[in-house]
Amino acid sequence: MPFPDGRGTVYIKRPGIRDEPKTRGATVDQVYRDFFSPHWWISVVLVSLVVGLMTPRIDALLSKSSSRVLSFWRKRSAAQASREQEQIASLRASEYAQVMAAVDAVHLMARGVGLFVMSGWLFTMLRLPSIELLIVKLPSFKVLHFITGLCALVAMTLAMSSMMRAAELRRVVRLAKGDSK
């Protein structure tokens, strides 16, 4: 049965359990007292001064680093575009190269699907009740459980990479053939 104390916090009485308030953190009264204390105002002023003094330095550092990242990204994108144009030109020169690139794309897609199936199987194995029971009974089994989960993540990452490369290769083959899709 709940019993309010003087501040409005509700305590629940249960036999054998220590009485604890239902509220967590600071109460409104405590926040109100802290707001009007000199300690709070001094700390606010000091923090705002430090932030105000550090802002120009942080701004210069961020703009310098962002310009480096953007220039690196532009160079990387230009290099990728030139490599893609070279690949398209070499595929246009030979119909055999187009067929082999299409076969490579199919191979990469099949590899990606197989790795996705394997990662799904590994994740399913991790959640079997018998496996979870073994983890409780044999603490050394936790290492094998962790390694299995890590292998599932690696397999899923490799599957995504393989499928993305297959899609990119298929797009390049279509561009080499002259399709605009």
Rank of each mutant, 00 (worst) to 15 (best):
R7K: 11
V10A: 07
I12C: 05
D19C: 08
P21K: 02
P21R: 02
K22C: 10
D29P: 10
Q30V: 01
V31K: 09
F35W: 12
S37M: 02
P38Q: 04
W40V: 08
W40N: 09
V44N: 06
V50W: 00
G52R: 01
G52P: 02
M54R: 10
T55Q: 04
R57S: 11
I58V: 05
L62F: 06
K64N: 15
S65C: 06
L70H: 10
R74F: 04
R76A: 13
S77Q: 11
S77R: 12
S82R: 11
S82K: 11
I88S: 01
A93H: 02
S94C: 00
E95M: 13
Q98A: 02
V99T: 07
H107E: 14
H107K: 15
M109W: 09
A110G: 11
G112L: 01
V113R: 10
G114C: 03
L122K: 02
L122S: 01
F123I: 08
T124D: 13
T124K: 11
L126C: 06
L126G: 09
L128R: 10
E132R: 15
L133I: 14
I135Y: 08
P139F: 04
S140I: 09
I147Q: 11
T148M: 10
A152K: 00
L158W: 07
L169D: 02
L169W: 01
L169E: 02
R170T: 06
A176W: 02
K177S: 04
G178A: 00
G178W: 01
K181N: 15
